[in-house]
Design a protein around this nucleic acid. Sequence first.
DNA 1: TATATTTACGAACGGTCGGTCGTTTTATAG
DNA 2: CTATAAAACGACCGACCGTTCGTAAATATA
Lengths: 211, 211
Amino acid sequence: MTQDGRLIRGERTRTAVLEQALLLATVSGLDGLSLSQVADALGVSKSGLFAHWRSKEALQLAVVDQARTQWTDRVIRPALTAPAGARRLWAVHLSRLAFYEARVLPGGCFFANAHFEFNARPGAVRDRLATEQTDWLTFLTGLATEAVTRGDLRPGTDPAVLAYQVEALGVCAVMQAPVLGPETTYPHARRALLDHLRAVSTDPTILPEQP
Amino acid sequence: MTQDGRLIRGERTRTAVLEQALLLATVSGLDGLSLSQVADALGVSKSGLFAHWRSKEALQLAVVDQARTQWTDRVIRPALTAPAGARRLWAVHLSRLAFYEARVLPGGCFFANAHFEFNARPGAVRDRLATEQTDWLTFLTGLATEAVTRGDLRPGTDPAVLAYQVEALGVCAVMQAPVLGPETTYPHARRALLDHLRAVSTDPTILPEQP
DNA sequence: TATATTTACGAACGGTCGGTCGTTTTATAG
DNA sequence: CTATAAAACGACCGACCGTTCGTAAATATA
């Protein structure tokens, strides 16, 4: 009936291309990525890619979407099982670092790489990355606010500054891990945030003593 | 006598090229940079660049050197006027953020950009960037250790974790500033570290109350 | 003056880039 | 079976890439 074998096949290669492009983009960069590279890695022709995306920029935007989906599935969603408040903020931090440590993407973090690559290059890709970044920080700020209003954290705590700290410790981890080694970098990233959260908690016992 | 007009002229264009290349590298990336781009920006011929550097990679390594010199002159040296200990660590943080805020480099931070660009690309450039990163973090850790041994910070403070925090808050600032605006990002970066330093200080009065 | 040496250039090279076009294959619909 | 539409391909394009080479000008040394 409605199952069109052509559309099914098209959608399958479409997602296959996006997954491959996401991996390669973390290594070569979202712009440094070449279409021949992606096509060869999948055994398809370069011109075949243009049947799915009109231009390289269109593919880049689709890759950003793919990366966001992956981030939501593998970082955010698992952490939402933790109880709301300070523990959920801590869970997001742990979940994110676990995602990095699992080396799901060979080049570390797609968003961190892409932000630094495009931070001075106006265009549609940069604009899209900017909204992703604001969305992410809004999410973190929301968690921090919730932790304060629920009484987990001391009333004077500034949620925006706390969200900034969480983001900073996470980004720095994926930056330093390849150079200084994951076995020291990630523990530092966990230790730093846990110490801070416990220091500003009204009841530190709801958080673990050790990361 | 010893003043060879050829060498003088060569050295002048050499530094001019490096300065221009450093600026452009923060926008297009250290690898995304093209030699035509650099040559055109200075009104010289592309082939003339090869009289000074045998290959693009040799130029890239020279640009890293140039960036390190600039970082030492404009970030580290000014901060060393602060008294040793916690105040010097704070001064380095302020000096670094001031360097970012001054927008000396149009693309933000050369080293942050380059690290994320090369973190998965083996080669001489990546190796050089890695040593720069370890040197920098060793420097920060040294300052943190000094702050503890001098008694500015509580004895239990882990200098490595503190250095990690300083680096994280700094890197995140230059990443977020173009998107969320410098007028909120940099104050967050300052507020976060100052709060933490005062919290672990034995005598908080040696640090300012407000950033 | 004659001779090196350094700086800088223009022209050209092979290779890769993003992108276009016409065609073939595959599957649905009438 | 025929017509149609999507998917995928090979061949090709102009532009730009890093690089090489031969050469000319400027500046040193002898």
